[in-house]
C-alpha cells in the first residue's frame, strides 16, 4: 500500500508547474478517485522596509523533517479516508512567483480530500523543521518565520 512507503518529500529548487501537471495526469488511471484537492505554496515578493524579497533560500533539518513528514502523512491517512497523498517541499533557492510547496490529496469525495489537504498544510507549517532565508534584491536577507 502506498501509505506505508516512506516517501522523499524534498526537491531541490522550485516545484515546476509541469511536475504538478504530470502528477495530476498520473491519477487518471485511478478511477476510484472522485475528488482531488491541491495546495500550492508560492514565494511572495514581500516589500519589507522598502526592499523587495526576490527569493527564499530554504534549508531544513532533513532527518527530522523527513520523519515529521512521515508522521503527518500517517496521521492524515488515519484521520481521513484518502486514496492517495503527495507532498513535495523545496530546498535551496526558490524565486518569487515560483512554487515551494505542493500538497495533493485524493479521495472518493470532495470533503475528505479538502479537509485532509488543509490539515496537511497546517501541520507541515507548524511541525516540520524547515527554515527560510528571504533574500532581497540588494542581496541582504532576513529570516522568515511562519505566522
Amino acid at each position: 500500500m502506498e501509505k506505508k512507503k516512506p516517501k522523499k518529500v524534498f526537491v531541490q529548487g522550485a516545484i515546476s508547474p509541469e511536475k504538478i501537471a504530470t502528477s495530476i495526469a498520473h491519477h487518471q488511471v485511478k478511477t476510484n478517485i472522485g475528488a482531488h484537492d491541491i495546495f500550492l505554496g508560492q514565494v511572495r515578493a514581500d516589500e519589507i522596509d522598502g526592499k523587495m524579497v526576490k527569493a527564499i533560500d530554504y534549508s531544513a533539518y532533513e532527518e527530522m523533517a523527513e520523519n515529521k513528514f512521515h508522521e503527518i502523512r500517517e496521521s492524515a491517512f488515519e484521520k481521513y479516508d484518502l486514496t492517495c497523498m503527495h507532498i513535495y517541499h523545496s530546498l535551496g533557492e526558490v524565486k518569487a512567483g515560483e512554487i515551494c510547496l505542493f500538497v495533493f490529496t485524493s479521495s472518493k469525495h470532495r470533503k475528505m480530500a479538502m479537509d485532509a489537504c488543509r490539515y496537511l498544510v497546517e501541520e507541515i507549517k507548524a511541525q516540520v523543521p524547515v527554515f527560510g532565508k528571504e533574500i532581497f534584491e540588494d542581496e541582504s536577507h532576513q529570516w522568515k518565520v511562519n505566522s
Partner: peptide, 30 residues
Amino acid sequence: IAIDANLVEDENEKLKPGALVALLPPFAGG
C-alpha cells in the same frame, strides 16, 4: 532544542553522552 531528531518537551531532561542535539529557530516551511 531537539535531541536525536525529536523536540525536547521538558528541558530538565537529562542529556545522555553521545546525544545529537539540534538548535532549531522558528519554522518557516511552505
